[in-house]
Structures are given as structure tokens and as C-alpha cells.
Simulated assay, not measured.
Amino acid sequence: MYKIIACDLDETLLSDDRTISKDNVEAIEKAKELGVKFVPATGRGFNTVGGTLKDLGLYDLENEYVISYNGGAITENKGSKLLHFEGISFEKASELYKRGLDYDVCIHVYTKDMVYAYKYVQEEKDYLAGRMEVTEIFDDNIDFLKGQEIVKVLYMNTDYQYLKGIENDLKEIIGDLDVSYSSNRYIEFNHQGVNKGQGLKHLVELLHVDMKETIAIGDNFNDLSMIKVAGLGVGVQNTVEEMKKECDIITKATNNQGAIAEVINQYILGTN
């Protein structure tokens, strides 16, 4: 019996219109009734997922959890209690920010409570509308963040090959970071060893659950670490083609067609 479902949000649980399908909500509720924990696992911060938690009946509940910042934080929903946090140094964030100025990218800097964006182009504003609040900045440095805990830095460009080229350019400064890709638009820089897979491992240890009793569901490369460590690693139908072979199964449904309900019905409820 699976005890934990760790599930990506954007392009996985959430439809393209940023809602959760009725089929998904009902299936998740049935899994919860059987004692299965449904754990959102997102690259975004905990403070951006309140609406999703409310839709799922998980808001402000004890013994329910969120893996956020790509595994950089684990939070208990009740009282937003932070149980685990691991970010990057200000010096590293500042270096990434300054190097990012040389590229055709929107730069995001995440603190525990806020996301700051440089070159905040309209395309990115449209994509993030309804997902999270962002503060636009215009300086060529982030000295105003000295003394604050910084979670991660990311660059946005919808050309994946362009982002891969940046990763190659920055080899000398990102060797001590965990680099991942998400949403077909981001290259993300976390602290070394920080990823969703490690986040799931931390949660499993916290709850004294066997990793074999977990399901991980996602659609992009920042989900791959948890998909590979989970007892059952699932890619939704719209998963990035290059990583489908790394998944144990691929759903028939996309994120717009109730992919999470498909997984729960088959592997938790046994109704498929």
C-alpha cells in the first residue's frame, strides 16, 4: 500500500488554466480517506500554494506537508511550520545574478518570503499571474538582500537549448550547485544536493515511511530526482519527452485530463 503521493503542481496537478480538475480533487480525497498523504512538491514557495491546499482540503492541517523550493524546504501545513530549509549563500546568489545580466533571461531570486525578478518581461508576467506574487527589481546587484536567507536563483528563457548553453558557460561557478530545468522555461540553481528527490527522502525519514511506499508524479526535469527515488515514479502524458524513459509509468492522461486521478484510481483505489 502506498502511503505518500508527492506531486508536482504546474503542468502536473494543475491544468493549463491553473485549476485542479474535479476528477483529481475527488480521487485525492478518496486517497486521503485511506490514510494516504498527498504532498505537493513544487519549485515555488510554500506561500504560493495556499489556494491549491484549500482546493484539496489540506490547508492549515496538522500532519500534512508541502515540499517547496525544489526540496529546499519542507513545511507542515498547520501554522506554516518550517521543518527543513536549505538555501544558497548570498555570495553565490549575487554571482549568479551578476552573470545573468549578460544573458537574454529574466532572473528570479527567491527568499523565504518573496520572489524578485529582473527583466520581468510581459511573457513571464502572464505565465506567473495567478501562480505567485513577484516583486520587480531594476538594479544590477542584489546587495539589498544581504543578511537574508536566499533559497535559489533561476533564469527564464523559453528556448531550452539557450538555457543549456548558459549551463555550459557557467560550469566554473555552478559545480557546487544542484542544477535543474522546469516548466519548459527555467534553469534553476539550488544548493548542492537540494532537489525534490532529497526533499522526499527527508519527508520519508520524518514520517518513518519506507521509500517503497511512495509515489512521485511530475512532468519535467526538476521532478526527475523524486520520480527516480520513489517506489513508483510517474510521468504524466505531457512529460518532457527526453525524460519519459526514466519514469516507471507514463499516464494516458495529460495534466488537463485528470492524470493524478488516473494514478490514484489504478494504484491506490484499484478501480482502473
Rank of each mutant, 00 (worst) to 15 (best):
Met1Gln: 09
Ile4Glu: 02
Ile4Phe: 00
Ile5Cys: 03
Leu9Val: 07
Thr12Asn: 09
Asp16Phe: 05
Asp16Gln: 12
Asp17Tyr: 03
Arg18Asn: 14
Ile20Met: 14
Ile28Asn: 02
Lys37Glu: 13
Gly43Ile: 14
Arg44Tyr: 01
Thr48Arg: 07
Gly51Pro: 05
Lys54Ser: 08
Asp55Ser: 15
Leu61Lys: 15
Tyr69Ile: 11
Ile74Asn: 08
His84Leu: 15
Ser94Thr: 04
Glu95Lys: 13
Glu95Trp: 06
Lys98Asp: 00
Cys106Arg: 08
Val109Gln: 08
Val109Lys: 08
Thr111Leu: 03
Glu124Trp: 01
Lys125Asp: 02
Leu128Asn: 11
Ala129Val: 07
Ala129Thr: 15
Gly130His: 03
Arg131Lys: 12
Met132Cys: 11
Glu133Arg: 09
Asp139Leu: 13
Asp139Asn: 15
Lys164Val: 15
Glu172Gln: 10
Ile173Lys: 09
Ser180Cys: 14
Tyr186Asp: 02
Val194Thr: 08
Lys201Asn: 08
Leu203Ala: 07
Val204Leu: 05
Ile215Ala: 06
Gly218Tyr: 10
Asp223Pro: 07
Met226Ser: 07
Val236Ser: 09
Asp248Phe: 00
Thr254Asn: 11
Asn255His: 14
Asn256Pro: 07
Gln257Tyr: 10
Ala259Arg: 11
Ile260Arg: 06
Ile264Asp: 09
Asn265Gly: 06
Thr271Arg: 00
